[in-house]
């Protein structure tokens, strides 16, 4: 059971990592093409900025989980170290519940956007906006997964747990 879970997790992380590398490369290529187009070929691509911006939305939504896994989200955790152990655990449980609520609201709320996104087409590319809005539930679900993996051991497990830093 645990083996299957960890395999699925490794698979998800690999996909997310590969997507991240592809997206940043795509953004770079699109903007470079736009500059080349303007100065070298004297021809403008109307959709390069829009496509790069959409890539950025996907990049950030997926990257939020990557940053969680790598411990790149900053926070101030030294204040609660002055609390007694039981209080620390209580605060952590409350904080965990609030974050789950927040990400849940984003994921549920995005369904409304996606419904609109099937009707509305983007300005330049003329693709349904849903193609971009799907980044919200998918990215934030992965964010939630990595957040749970990073936080739950601190609440239930031993006191010295560390998030996986290597990729």
């Amino acid at each position: 059971m645990i083996r299957i879970c960890s395999r699925v997790l490794t698979f998800i992380r690999t996909i997310v990592n590969m997507s991240a590398v592809l997206l940043i490369t795509l953004m770079m290529a699109l903007i470079f093409a736009q500059i080349l187009g303007r100065y070298v070929f004297n021809f403008s691509i109307a959709w390069s900025e829009e496509m790069a911006t959409f890539a950025q939305v996907w990049l950030v939504m997926l990257g939020a989980g990557i940053a969680m896994r790598r411990g790149q989200h900053v926070g101030i955790d030294m204040m609660i170290l002055y609390f007694p152990m039981w209080a620390q655990r209580l605060v952590k449980v409350a904080a965990f519940a609030l974050v789950v609520w927040f990400l849940g609201v984003v994921i549920v709320g995005s369904t409304g956007l996606i419904a609109i996104g099937y009707i509305v087409k983007s300005t330049a590319l003329q693709v349904p906006m849903a193609a971009v809005y799907y980044a919200l539930p998918i990215g934030m679900s992965y964010f939630l997964l990595e957040f749970a993996i990073a936080t739950l051991p601190q609440i239930f497990g031993s006191q010295s747990s560390d998030t996986e830093a290597a990729t």
Partner: peptide
């Protein structure tokens, strides 16, 4: 122009 296909 603006980034609108019609304008282009």
């Amino acid at each position: 122009t603006m980034q609108q296909p019609m304008h282009v």
